[in-house]
Design a protein around this nucleic acid. Structure first.
Length: 483
DNA sequence: TCCCTGTAGGGAAAAGCCCGGG
DNA sequence: TCCCGGGCTTTTCCCTACAGGG
């Protein structure tokens, strides 16, 4: 009842404000630049549009596409054509923005007090205080919450990751609030020293230059995070409300609701390289990409730049499994892997008893025992418990088919669909009936087929039972037949 | 009967973060 | 103070099972 009330309220709000909450819509060109194979559980189709967790360098993605085999390049070319079709606009129709419903009763999903997307007016008003957010988090299902309890969540953004990061930032903010004053003073001193250094750059050693570059990078980031001279020098500064008064962000927010173009990176002051990449990605996009600013965007340097480090050498896989010889870079990954060989499944679901090798898989499994489905399709209202499931579902609305059959060019929503479809071209039938030898493209079809054998055999045996001189054998079960 | 499409969910590896010990 | 490794956790890719419709 409450859920329905929530939903109707939320949909009402969505109808009224749908134009205010829109996801980034990447340029169709970028869709082919990034790998279309990815269908992540976070729903992250294009990593470049999720600065929170998977910021990658746009240029390198383009280079990646150029080095593809011809067959794949051909497929991408088809995807590009599909993407340019207005009706199959990737990834969502312009008004689409799913809603996350608050639910504090089940424990697995916290009541999510903030949207990853910040309405433009929030930028001018500032964020709610930590205490206000906390007090809102206990809004349960028993009372009708105020309208602002409904938040739009872009399924492409791993919201757990976002929530986790936000929580950490706020915790850190609290912890460092006392220390920050000291830090400010320290960085002010550093700033003065640094400016003195800048006047005599020729005398810097390479090491000092590196240090200066690092410092400058930090400063750029912090400049974006806060406009105040003190906090710009404090790398620990994380005051969210202060962030929102940043001129660069306000510059973006002022373009609300429908800017014709995102400004060039050059026109925005003090952006880190990751942020510049993001702006470059956004540049040339049609509106309304800048109507909302993802808060994680503000912290790209903290999270995204680590993943931007393309020059990082691949980790040395020094931990080798003594059973299969597979190597891993971490010892704990090897420990987890070894459970495959030992059959050890130490993580048991307390509800159904099912066991898992990895704790995360158990956590994910627990969700199946709840009705928590935070990802709601804005088009048909169908709810999903995984962002990736919603995202896959959204493809049915957007007609986005990134997986192209190399034989006939037909597009599919999922890779597995394409794979199975390809069987019709290759004639491959990987699932073979062990009774009659007939092959099938799908295991489920084979299972259905096996039931036919079971029924036929059961029928025959039953006839035998009633016929004179019958053997009296009992009919084997379907599983017996199939085995 | 088979194929296609869509949904649900598990297996496994990679990687981020934190913390304690050397 | 720094580095390393372990533990915990999330994210991601891949895959299968299954149901329903054509």
């Amino acid at each position: 009842m409450e859920q329905r009330l929530y939903r109707s309220l939320a949909m009402e709000i969505l109808r009224e404000e749908k134009d205010m909450y829109r996801p980034y819509l990447p340029d169709p060109k970028t869709e082919t630049a990034t790998s279309p194979h990815s269908t992540s559980d976070s729903g992250l189709e294009d990593p470049s549009i999720s600065p929170a967790s998977s910021c990658t360098d746009y240029k390198s993605d383009v280079e990646f596409s150029l080095s593809l085999p011809q067959s794949e390049a051909s497929a991408f070319s088809k995807i590009q054509k599909l993407s340019l079709n207005a009706e199959s606009r990737y990834p969502f129709p312009p008004t689409a923005m799913p809603i996350m419903f608050p639910n504090s009763g089940l424990g697995y999903f916290p009541t999510f007090p903030m949207s990853p997307w910040i309405p433009a007016d929030t930028l001018s008003k500032g964020f709610p205080s930590m205490s206000a957010m906390t007090s809102r988090s206990d809004v349960g299902l028993r009372e009708v919450p105020p309208e602002d309890v409904f938040y739009r969540v872009d399924p492409r953004v791993p919201f757990t990751n976002y929530f986790m990061n936000l929580t950490k930032l706020l915790k850190k903010d609290e912890k460092s609030s006392e220390a920050s004053h000291k830090e400010c003073d320290r960085y002010e001193t550093l700033s003065r020293e640094e400016s003195d250094c800048h006047s005599d750059e020729e005398e810097m050693t390479p090491k000092e230059e590196d240090e200066n570059e690092r410092q400058a990078s930090t400063n750029q980031t912090d400049d974006l995070k806060s406009p105040t001279p003190h906090s710009t020098r404090n790398p620990d500064y994380r005051n969210m409300s202060a962030l929102m008064t940043n001129p660069a962000l306000l510059c973006l927010s002022q373009m609300h609701p429908y800017p014709s173009k995102v400004p060039s990176a050059e026109s925005l002051p003090h952006l880190s390289s990751a942020q510049t990449s993001m702006i470059q990605l956004m540049s040339g996009m049609s509106a309304p990409s800048a109507a909302l600013i993802h808060p994680a965007f503000l912290h790209m340097s903290a999270l995204g730049q680590k993943r931007l480090n393309q020059e990082k050498p691949p980790p040395v896989k020094k931990y080798k499994c003594d059973v299969c010889g597979k190597a891993f870079s971490r010892s704990n990954t090897l420990v987890t892997h070894k459970r495959i060989h030992t059959g050890d499944k130490p993580f048991k679901c307390e509800i159904c008893g099912r066991a898992f090798r990895q704790p995360g898989n158990l956590t994910r499994h627990r969700l199946t025992h709840t009705t928590v489905k935070p990802y709601v399709c804005p088009t048909c209202n169908k709810a999903f418990n995984r962002a990736s499931n919603l995202h896959t579902h959204m493809r049915t609305h957007t007609n986005y088919r990134p997986f192209i059959c190399p034989y006939c060019g037909k597009g599919f929503h999922q890779k597995i669909d394409m794979k199975i479809h390809c069987y019709t071209h290759t004639g491959e039938r990987p699932h073979r009936c062990d009774i009659c030898g007939k092959g099938f493209t799908l295991a489920s079809t084979l299972n259905t087929h096996r039931r036919i054998h079971a029924e036929q055999r059961g029928f025959t045996l039953m006839e035998g039972e009633i016929s004179p001189g019958g053997s009296g054998h009992t009919a084997p079960s379907a599983t017996q037949v199939s085995s």
